[in-house]
Design a protein around this nucleic acid. Sequence first.
DNA 1: GACGAATACGAGCGATCGCTCGTATTGTCT
DNA 2: AGACAATACGAGCGATCGCTCGTATTCGTC
Lengths: 201, 201
Amino acid sequence: MERRRQARGERRMAQILDAAAEVFAGSGYENATTNAIAAAAGVSPGSLYQFFPNKEAIAQALAARFVSQMGEAHQGAFADADWAAMTLDEMLDRVVDPIVAFNAANPGFKALFARADMPAGLTEAARPIQAALLGRVETMIAALAPGLPPDGRTRAAVVGIQIFKAMLPLVLAAEGPERAAMTAELKRVLRGYLGSLGSPG
Amino acid sequence: MERRRQARGERRMAQILDAAAEVFAGSGYENATTNAIAAAAGVSPGSLYQFFPNKEAIAQALAARFVSQMGEAHQGAFADADWAAMTLDEMLDRVVDPIVAFNAANPGFKALFARADMPAGLTEAARPIQAALLGRVETMIAALAPGLPPDGRTRAAVVGIQIFKAMLPLVLAAEGPERAAMTAELKRVLRGYLGSLGSPG
DNA sequence: GACGAATACGAGCGATCGCTCGTATTGTCT
DNA sequence: AGACAATACGAGCGATCGCTCGTATTCGTC
């Protein structure tokens, strides 16, 4: 089923994904029209459909691209971290800032990932990165609250990620010093929650 | 512009709003079709449009109904509360449980209110309840952290409400003991955050 | 019972949108 | 150069959906 692509085709696909990110960021996935994506890419609808079988495939391909980029950002945030030797505040600085920066730089990202109700194919596309993120947060939490049982650890990671996703729009909507204040508030929420995991109740 | 309604008409409107709540809960606002709402209400599309000028008006009327019901729920949770005499845990029990119960009993509610991206008219409809909620949470926070300046208080209330909205799907998706655990986790998040408001940073 | 208003119906209009198809052009390989 | 695949175009198809309109029935009022 795979088709042999020329260099021109690869370039077109990248153009289309750029345009899709832009349009998704502006209108959200549902309201974005494929004709608008094609127009934003400077391409006819027919050409668009020579590279992607349908709208969902565009979102999936864009999601895949985001996944790999986000993977690199996470690499910087999570990899080679000796959690046991860090304070909670240090952990938060290390993790929160780069992820906020990534989301600020890629406004299309949250239109595909940080949604309460995701179209069928998108959940699938988002799964790898969410699973990876969950695992990384779990190991961080394990260092933070060694006494916590595994299911509690998973639940804590899910909650922490959910909090992050919820606060992101608030952080990104703010500008300049307001954004700094909101980022601080996000860290305060996470610090308060994660710091309490050691004690019961 | 107001039309004289018969008792039959009032009943129909209530039926239609019931059906709309059901359909919105099942499909979300965007994916819900007016024909589906009419069918669920046992009414023809034409009849539906004798009572509501358009789809948005249905959502607004339903929102208004939710607002008044939610107002009563908040009355029980917030009114006549002597926050100064209560511990943080007592405050949380008093506020969180009834609101979670309300949302569990009205699944259509969060389809209209707890959305990141709301259609134009819905933001308007949701404003009164959100303003009321914000004010109530602010007074609670004022009792909790007297030293906090007003803008910090508002920000804290916004953040607290956002956390609540984010955790709601997690809580409602869980069943039985899982839900209790998730509710406890929600309280833990809020306790950690609100409890830290007194100290800087 | 008569008359107007309110209620009820449902086929279908108009607009939107994802996507197709016939055709023309450009690139690649021998 | 010739041949075939890949790329490109854009008018428009088919389906969906919010909503309308002509008409029929029921209710309130005298």
